[in-house]
Amino acid sequence: MLEHFRAVVRFLLFAVALAAAPPALFAHAANVDVNTADEAALRAIKGIGPAKAKAIVDERATGGFFKDADDLGRRVKGLGGRSVERLRAEGLTVGGVSSGAMLAERPYAATGCAVLYNRTDSHCSR
């Protein structure tokens, strides 16, 4: 009876410790799409620090969505084929792009106008 009680207590302590564990311990289990994630979500992937997360977001903002893992490796300095594959093993994905998401992310520049997302100032023409 006492041994059964000890086993239940050990199980409960384990369950409480697991529930209290920081989410970063489980970051590799969740998929993070490079085309939709913000810097904080990208930093949750093991191997992506603040500078690399910013570089990915900046490149996506200027060059549009990444087509695939090779495109990500070509466009972001410091991410080669091996690095991208390692990040993919940690949960980084390059997902599909819906047209609505594409409009929200891809900026365009009209000549002589400030670059805004999906629009220019009212006096500018496309």
Rank of each mutant, 00 (worst) to 15 (best):
T111H: 06
A20I: 06
K67S: 10
R75F: 10
I45Y: 03
A21R: 08
P50I: 00
S99T: 12
V97R: 13
G81D: 06
A19L: 15
A109E: 09
E105W: 00
L79I: 15
L116T: 13
A15F: 13
L87C: 11
M1I: 13
L103S: 11
T62M: 04
A37Q: 07
G78D: 06
A30G: 07
A51I: 10
V76H: 03
E105D: 02
L87D: 08
R6I: 10
G49M: 06
F66Y: 15
G63Q: 13
T62I: 03
V34I: 13
L92K: 06
Y117G: 06
L12I: 15
K46Q: 14
G96T: 13
M1W: 11
R10H: 05
L72S: 01
E85M: 04
D58L: 10
P23I: 09
V32P: 04
V34C: 13
E90D: 11
V57L: 10
V84R: 03
I45G: 07
T120R: 03
G80M: 01
C113P: 12
T111I: 06
A17R: 03
P107L: 04
G96V: 04
S99P: 11
T93Y: 00
P50K: 10
A101G: 13
D33S: 06
R119Q: 15
D121I: 02
R43F: 00
A41S: 14
G81N: 06
T93M: 04
A29H: 07
L25N: 02
R6K: 11
G64M: 08
D33W: 07
L42A: 07
A40V: 09
A24H: 12
E90C: 05
A40F: 01
L25R: 02
D71K: 02
N31W: 00
M1F: 12
V84N: 06
A109D: 02
A17E: 02
A109C: 14
L92P: 02
A53H: 10
A21S: 10
V16T: 10
R126H: 11
V16M: 10
L2Y: 04
L116D: 14
G64H: 07
T36C: 05
V34S: 12
T62Y: 01
R88K: 15
A109N: 07
A20M: 14
T93W: 00
L103M: 14
A110D: 07
G80W: 01
Y108P: 01
G81K: 08
G95A: 09
E105G: 07
G47F: 06
A37K: 03
H4S: 15
D58K: 11
R43Q: 15
D33I: 06
L87Q: 08
G91S: 10
D71G: 04
C113V: 07
K54R: 15
T36V: 12
G112T: 11
H28Y: 06
A89N: 05
R43C: 10
H123V: 11
A29P: 00
P107E: 08
